[in-house]
Lab assay of single mutants.
Amino acid sequence: GTEIELESKNGQREHYTATSEDEARKIIEKAVRRGIKRIELRGASEQLIRDMQEIAKQIGLQYRTDGSL
């Protein structure tokens, strides 16, 4: 699965493990709508990382991946 670590603007951290790319995408989209400061992805697919970079650029988000592409 993909591990997703979120940090909201007030510094609250949340951790999710998505079993599918679809689920990961839903978690990320929800977080973005809620207003999130930072997202870290571990074990994400190349496609998901590309999507994440696109989203991050659009809304000026900090993100990090573990680089295991």
Rank of each mutant, 00 (worst) to 15 (best):
G1T: 14
G1F: 13
G1W: 13
G1Y: 13
T2R: 02
T2V: 13
T2A: 07
T2H: 04
T2C: 13
T2I: 11
T2Y: 11
E3I: 09
E3L: 11
E3R: 08
E3Y: 14
I4D: 01
I4V: 05
I4L: 05
I4M: 03
E5N: 11
E5P: 00
E5C: 14
E5V: 14
E5R: 13
E5W: 14
E5L: 14
L6F: 11
L6A: 03
L6V: 14
E7I: 10
E7H: 11
E7S: 06
E7K: 04
E7G: 03
E7L: 13
E7F: 07
S8T: 14
S8R: 12
S8N: 13
K9C: 15
K9W: 11
K9E: 12
K9I: 13
N10C: 14
N10W: 08
N10D: 14
N10Y: 07
N10I: 06
N10T: 12
G11I: 01
G11E: 02
G11T: 03
G11R: 02
G11F: 01
G11W: 00
G11A: 05
G11L: 02
Q12N: 09
Q12C: 14
Q12P: 04
Q12D: 14
R13T: 11
R13M: 10
R13C: 13
R13N: 06
R13Y: 10
E14C: 15
E14N: 06
E14K: 04
H15T: 13
H15N: 11
H15I: 11
H15Q: 08
H15S: 09
H15R: 11
H15Y: 14
Y16V: 08
Y16P: 01
Y16L: 08
Y16C: 11
T17Y: 13
T17H: 14
T17W: 12
T17D: 09
T17I: 12
T17N: 08
T17G: 04
A18R: 03
A18T: 09
A18F: 15
A18Q: 03
A18M: 07
A18S: 09
T19Q: 12
T19V: 13
T19P: 06
T19I: 13
T19M: 13
T19D: 11
S20I: 02
S20F: 04
S20Y: 04
E21T: 08
E21K: 02
E21Q: 05
E21N: 07
E21R: 04
D22S: 09
D22A: 10
D22W: 07
D22K: 09
D22M: 10
D22V: 09
E23G: 03
E23T: 03
E23V: 10
E23R: 03
A24D: 00
A24H: 00
A24V: 08
A24R: 00
A24F: 09
A24S: 02
R25I: 09
R25D: 00
R25V: 04
R25N: 01
R25K: 08
R25C: 05
K26R: 09
K26V: 12
I27P: 00
I27L: 08
I27V: 05
I27D: 00
I27T: 01
I27Y: 08
I27E: 01
I28C: 04
I28P: 00
I28T: 01
I28S: 00
E29G: 07
E29M: 10
E29D: 07
E29P: 00
K30P: 01
K30V: 13
K30R: 11
K30W: 09
K30I: 12
A31M: 06
A31L: 07
A31N: 04
V32Q: 02
V32D: 00
V32W: 03
V32E: 01
V32P: 00
V32A: 08
R33V: 13
R33K: 13
R33Q: 14
R33T: 12
R33N: 12
R33M: 09
R34V: 12
R34Q: 13
R34P: 05
R34G: 12
G35L: 03
G35S: 05
G35W: 02
G35Q: 05
G35H: 06
G35M: 03
I36W: 01
I36P: 02
I36Y: 05
I36H: 01
K37D: 05
K37T: 10
K37F: 07
K37G: 06
K37I: 14
R38V: 07
R38C: 13
R38Q: 06
R38W: 15
R38N: 07
R38E: 04
R38D: 02
I39K: 00
I39T: 00
E40Q: 12
E40F: 10
E40T: 14
L41N: 00
L41I: 12
L41H: 01
R42N: 06
R42G: 05
R42W: 12
G43Y: 08
G43C: 11
G43P: 13
G43E: 03
G43T: 05
G43R: 05
A44L: 02
A44N: 02
A44V: 05
S45G: 04
S45L: 03
S45N: 03
S45D: 04
E46M: 05
E46C: 14
E46Y: 02
E46P: 09
Q47C: 10
Q47D: 09
Q47S: 12
Q47K: 08
Q47H: 05
Q47G: 11
L48I: 05
L48V: 03
I49V: 09
I49Y: 09
I49L: 11
R50G: 04
R50H: 09
R50V: 07
R50E: 07
R50L: 08
R50M: 10
R50F: 06
D51V: 14
D51N: 06
D51M: 14
D51C: 11
D51W: 14
M52G: 00
M52C: 06
M52S: 02
M52Y: 03
M52P: 00
M52R: 00
M52T: 09
M52E: 00
Q53N: 08
Q53P: 03
Q53A: 11
Q53G: 06
E54K: 09
E54W: 05
E54Y: 05
E54F: 07
E54Q: 11
I55W: 13
I55F: 11
I55P: 00
I55V: 07
I55E: 01
A56I: 09
A56V: 06
A56N: 02
A56G: 04
K57R: 12
K57D: 09
K57V: 07
Q58P: 01
Q58W: 03
Q58A: 12
Q58K: 14
I59W: 15
I59Q: 14
I59Y: 15
I59D: 05
I59V: 14
G60Q: 05
G60P: 02
G60V: 03
G60F: 10
G60E: 15
L61P: 15
L61V: 08
L61R: 02
L61H: 04
L61W: 04
Q62E: 15
Q62W: 04
Q62R: 08
Q62A: 04
Y63F: 15
Y63P: 15
Y63K: 15
Y63C: 15
Y63A: 15
Y63G: 15
Y63L: 15
Y63V: 15
Y63W: 15
R64H: 15
R64S: 15
R64G: 15
R64L: 15
T65Q: 06
T65M: 04
T65P: 15
D66S: 04
D66P: 02
G67T: 09
G67P: 05
G67N: 04
G67C: 15
G67Q: 05
G67H: 04
S68Q: 08
S68A: 05
S68M: 07
S68E: 12
S68D: 10
S68H: 07
L69F: 15
L69S: 06
L69Q: 07
